[in-house]
Amino acid sequence: MEGILNQLPIGLSIGAVLLLIALGLTFTFGQMGVINMAHGEFIMAGAYTAYLLQDFADRNAVLVALPVAFLVAGLMGLILERTAIRHFYGRPLDTLLLTWGVSLVLQQVARDLFGAPNVQVLSPTWLQGALGPMPYNRLFILLLAVGSVVAIWVYMNRSAQGRRMQAVMQNRQLAATSGINTGRVDQRTFFIGSGLAGIAGVALTLIGPVGPTLGTYYIVDAFLVVVAGGLGQLRGAVIAALALGLLNSYAEFWTNASLAKVIVFAVIIAFLQFRPQGLFVLRSRALT
């Protein structure tokens, strides 16, 4: 019985991890329609940022790394958008191949810079221990996810930039004719989306491996959350991440890890049969 109860906070924390890795994608994939296969590598870049900052901040590197990783991954995203992706807007398949290639290159770059083996990121001593069944580092990730969601919500709904971003997402042509520089909005969206991946990477150093292939372990889950939640929908992503986290938690508890993956995929496929648009649908009058 205790085991079953424990699965509830575990499910929430799995959901928080899913949410963190998917948040950035709700921007780049959800709003701009860019299938960015290199998103996982931006997560990896965030994790390695925490690793490098250990020289300066020692065990508190994880904290210091949060803003730095946001900038590092954000800049990487910006460079990718400026040099390559913007030439491929409206060509999703080409973008997919392009970003997949970029992800392979970035993995190899990481392997050459940091070596093939995983590196060690020490977690802060104040994150050791647990509150009941919930380890402090999981709690930290949960709070980080909540914090990120709130920050994004405020940005999107309360700032002029965020509202312009929404305008472009809802109707690109109309936004452009209203005088919004859509190219600049795209840059900003991509910067923020990639930066969020960096933050996720920092958080993942607390619970997972830090190596060149880190991104590949999370990229599929990230896309699942965005697709199930509905493209570009913040609340969709939140609900989908938590639902998938809980589903994962209980499916694995009652069966096993391999079967739980099958169950989660099966549920998502079935769900998309009924709601191909995901949980929430963007209402728009754009002619797409």
């Binding site: 085991g3 424990n6 699965q7 575990i10 924390s13 799995i14 991890v17 069944p133 999981r138 619970i207 997972g208 491996p209 292939t213 590949t216 372990y217 999370y218 994962n248 938690s249 694995e252 508890f253 096993n256 890890a257 391999s258 739980a260 993956k261």
Partner: peptide
């Protein structure tokens, strides 16, 4: 768990 699996909280429980 599948190769490359990274979520071990359920198994730990």
């Amino acid at each position: 768990t599948p190769l490359g699996h990274t979520e071990y909280s359920t198994l730990t429980n």
